[in-house]
Design a protein around this nucleic acid. Sequence first.
DNA 1: GATGAATGAGGGTTCATTCAT
DNA 2: TATGAATGAACCCTCATTCAT
Lengths: 195, 195, 195, 195
Amino acid sequence: MAKPRSGEKRTKIFRTALRLFAQNGYSKTTIKDIAAESNVSFGTVFTYFENKEELFHLCVTEPIEEFRHHLLETSGILEYFSIDKLKEMINEHVAYFLEKEDYLRVIQYVIGQPERFSKMMEELDLFSDEFMSFVQNVVKTGMEKGVLPESNPEEVGYGYLAFLMGARLTFTDYPGVQLTNALEKQAYRLFGIGI
Amino acid sequence: MAKPRSGEKRTKIFRTALRLFAQNGYSKTTIKDIAAESNVSFGTVFTYFENKEELFHLCVTEPIEEFRHHLLETSGILEYFSIDKLKEMINEHVAYFLEKEDYLRVIQYVIGQPERFSKMMEELDLFSDEFMSFVQNVVKTGMEKGVLPESNPEEVGYGYLAFLMGARLTFTDYPGVQLTNALEKQAYRLFGIGI
Amino acid sequence: MAKPRSGEKRTKIFRTALRLFAQNGYSKTTIKDIAAESNVSFGTVFTYFENKEELFHLCVTEPIEEFRHHLLETSGILEYFSIDKLKEMINEHVAYFLEKEDYLRVIQYVIGQPERFSKMMEELDLFSDEFMSFVQNVVKTGMEKGVLPESNPEEVGYGYLAFLMGARLTFTDYPGVQLTNALEKQAYRLFGIGI
Amino acid sequence: MAKPRSGEKRTKIFRTALRLFAQNGYSKTTIKDIAAESNVSFGTVFTYFENKEELFHLCVTEPIEEFRHHLLETSGILEYFSIDKLKEMINEHVAYFLEKEDYLRVIQYVIGQPERFSKMMEELDLFSDEFMSFVQNVVKTGMEKGVLPESNPEEVGYGYLAFLMGARLTFTDYPGVQLTNALEKQAYRLFGIGI
DNA sequence: GATGAATGAGGGTTCATTCAT
DNA sequence: TATGAATGAACCCTCATTCAT
């Protein structure tokens, strides 16, 4: 029996699961907990999701699409490049990474155990390749326009992704604005601007 | 009953545990697995470690000291500051972060679930504060010497730590040299140099 | 709420249930499976049958009547006894036991766990008593007519029933005709004929 | 970790399991029940057996060897054939089939669901072939010695096995001696003797 | 009548921990 | 010190049954 792919309860369960997986990891999170915090009964979780692994898998992969939209479709920067547009893009990236706390924690949990979650890693790798290649295009465009200093686009891609991931990983407790500013300014530097 | 704090078997078990915790996380790693891969019997693990939690706690906290040595006692940069010394320091940091794969995975596993591992988080936060304040001193010194451009030392600290953590988290498969170079050069930029 | 005792869907469900119970036993057979293989929805099964136990009970007891007809009303052998009529009866019995595979599997499943299915066992015992007493009458009649050799009718009854049940239980894969012949000839011997 | 293949507790658990599987079938029998009736804790069952399926498998296959001994090594009947020896063999077979109630119930449970337990069926089929070919040899020998009437050995084999299985299946409540006698005498008839 | 989402009791199984040897 | 059998809490999952639509 195919599982329903939508529905109010499914959404509730999904979000709860995402939060709990983010908080406690895969093994520590129990279906019982997910059910309780979703205000549904134990069995209902299995009405919407095949099993725990499938639920986790979906928590990891379903949001990728939305992620892609937010991170890659940034205000036509490739068509009309400018420092301001770049900064705007970076600001959005930083904000988005800091905002999507739960999802990124889950992602990092998976990335931290690539052998264990190899199936999901493949899908995440695809996205990370996509993201890096987008960043590389931005850098190339910026250089062609003579707006960005000489850089190795690949290196900027590596560094920028690492930086965003690390930012999300490392800072939990710090208040928002100050940290956000700090991270934005540091991110500019990775692109060779704002010094 | 106090547990032995040294011994060949203890070391073997400890290292195996660190590796397995890094690979599979806390819950998925079983004492049985640790014992088997350490070539000791099941019960022997409990001869050296109170219980699983204690073993994990030690895996997280024991190596901090060595970490401190490597990362903070870097060739008297504070006394004789120079761009070369700074680059040298950064190179060492990058190399060390990439080298200590297992340990850093474990750290990131803990950081990613701060409520769950709040006790260890405290100790890790102490070290991270220490590291950031060291970096801030480096930046301040560099600025005073007129060698580094105008920067907010705190921001550089944030960004640099995030970057190092993210680098370790994000890249597993890539070959060493090229990635190392890329990361080094991007790290320079965070300090406002290297372009 | 009284359940409908007839209807096309009821028949479909009933037959599917009988087949699945025969194939996999009571516990392994699920209502979901029965519904799916009957091409009805899940809940529909409960429209026609109180619950799983009731359905199983009916699978065991409903066909008894037809069984009785086929096995006990055999061509007036008690009125006009002859060796040929006896052989004819035996042939019919053997054929019927081999034909009613599903039902007899279910019967044997129940008989094999008499404590577990004590309620059904009572009904089955009634029929088995009836059958044995019929066979005893046949033997007595045959002896009175001087056509059957001296036998203990009860013993023949025991043996004959055991033989028929065992035949059905033991041989699944063997092709029909040869086995049927073999079993017929062996059954004759139990009555002291055909040697 | 390989499971212990002997030990007092293992024997206790094994026998309890055999009894409960015989009484209630595979699915209805719970590990909890087996543990309780064996006076061991729940987990101990898993110390000796991989899982429920494995335990069941062993219940079905381990006793085959002893079965073979008892049923096939019958007093050199093939070397020194005589009616008395044959009757002796039959008596032993009947007695053994009636005695090994639990084991044969389990066997019949498996045979009754051959698709479900196909793996075990293979092993059981091997034994049943062996048994039938032994019986065929007995019949051939008896015919050669001129002691048994003209028979189709294969047919006798079929019939005899069916009869023994059916006897075990069909009669549970009846007292021993009378039934035993009846079955023995009927079994003689299958070999064409004893009238 | 027909449906299938919701429920939760009960099953198999894992595994940290204890402890007698 | 070293071992591994014994334990049982807690997990995931199945499935009969109910009931609103």
